[in-house]
């Protein structure tokens, strides 16, 4: 009977039936592999999308931390616009660091999102420091330093050209108020940055037997990154410290301790005596007037520029 024949064929495991099972197994394995591969690709796509969206946020946090560091440290040093490079692996951001000398920027190397602010400088003479780009770095001496061996570049600038505009780092013999410093400065000099005493009070003077470079001193600018005068520089500095102690990233603690040092004096305004140095800009003639100033203890040249366009006078018709 036909039914019996069909039943016999169903249970007759000859060579043809084995091929069927092998074929079914192969198809099942292929389907599982294909689906697993596709799911892996989809999961990988999700991971890539998450990485691309999280990276800018993480990078911005590091950028902000670097900006807060250079807002507080670095005499007359500013950070330019950041150039971000977002990639799957190895994202980075870079910005130029520059000084402003009478509105003219002077390039001083780059800052990256993860660069260390510790700068190595070259100096055969301890009173003359240079960075690896060949730029002269300003040096500052704390008023409590006992050493009489201090830089006096004010007396060595006569060899420079007459129209040279010089950035001069000035260290005072004591702490003065911003008001006093402004009154003391001779005509023709621009006050662009001041060094404030953020050191803890200590008894021994030996701790200050060191010369600080321009990247190690703490202070606030009197001009912004475009060269425009800041209306209330002290309030701006205190705002930076307040925000920086939360958003300063790896520098949070340092900024918090600077803020604590600033608040040790009850009032903080232009009459508070905590200014121990400054960065002034001017030509040789204007700077010469500082030579006999009793407030000035040490002077150190920084950036030097030769004006591209002179300040000519309009001819009257």
């Amino acid at each position: 009977m036909k039914d019996n024949h069909d039943m016999d064929q169903l249970f007759n495991f000859d060579h043809k039936e084995k091929d069927l099972i092998t074929s079914a197994k192969r198809k099942s394995t292929w389907r599982m592999t294909w689906i697993s591969g596709l799911v892996s690709v989809l999961i990988l796509t999700l991971v890539v999308l998450i990485k691309l969206q999280l990276t800018p946020w993480l990078l911005d946090r590091e950028i902000i931390a670097q900006e807060f560091y250079y807002e507080v440290h670095g005499a007359n040093t500013f950070v330019g616009l950041w150039d971000e490079s977002i990639r799957l692996i190895g994202s980075s951001a870079k910005a130029p660091r520059y000084k402003l000398v009478q509105g003219q920027p002077v390039y001083r190397g780059d800052v990256t999102n993860d660069s260390s602010p510790v700068e190595v400088h070259v100096s055969a003479d301890p009173l003359q420091a240079y960075d690896y780009y060949g730029n002269k770095m300003m040096q500052f001496i704390h008023p409590q330093t006992a050493s009489s061996d201090v830089p006096n570049d004010l007396f060595g600038m006569d060899a420079m050209l007459d129209n040279t505009i010089i950035e001069m780092g000035v260290s005072f013999n004591d702490a003065y108020s911003l008001d006093s410093v402004r009154r003391m400065l001779p005509e023709g000099l621009d006050l662009q940055w001041v060094w404030v005493d953020a050191f803890p009070v200590i008894e021994e003077e030996e701790a200050f037997e060191m010369i600080l470079t321009e990247n190690e001193v703490i202070g606030y600018p009197l001009i912004d990154e475009t060269g425009k005068e800041i209306m209330d520089p002290i309030e701006h500095f205190m705002d930076v410290l307040e925000i920086g102690k939360d958003r300063g990233g790896r520098y949070k603690q340092e900024i918090a301790s600077i803020q604590a040092a600033m608040h040790e004096t009850r009032t903080l305004d232009e009459t508070t005596k905590n200014v121990i140095g400054a960065v002034v800009i001017g030509d040789k003639e204007a700077l010469r007037n500082l030579r006999n100033d009793p407030m000035v203890r040490a002077t150190s040249v920084g950036a030097i520029v030769h004006p591209v366009i002179g300040k000519g006078e309009m001819e009257n018709e």
Partner: peptide
């Protein structure tokens, strides 16, 4: 498919969609 992989993919999809959303 393994439950763990399914839940991991769920979490990844949730994060990847909700950040831009």
């Amino acid at each position: 498919m393994n439950k763990t992989i399914q839940w991991v993919s769920f979490v990844l999809a949730a994060v990847a969609i909700n950040i831009p959303a």
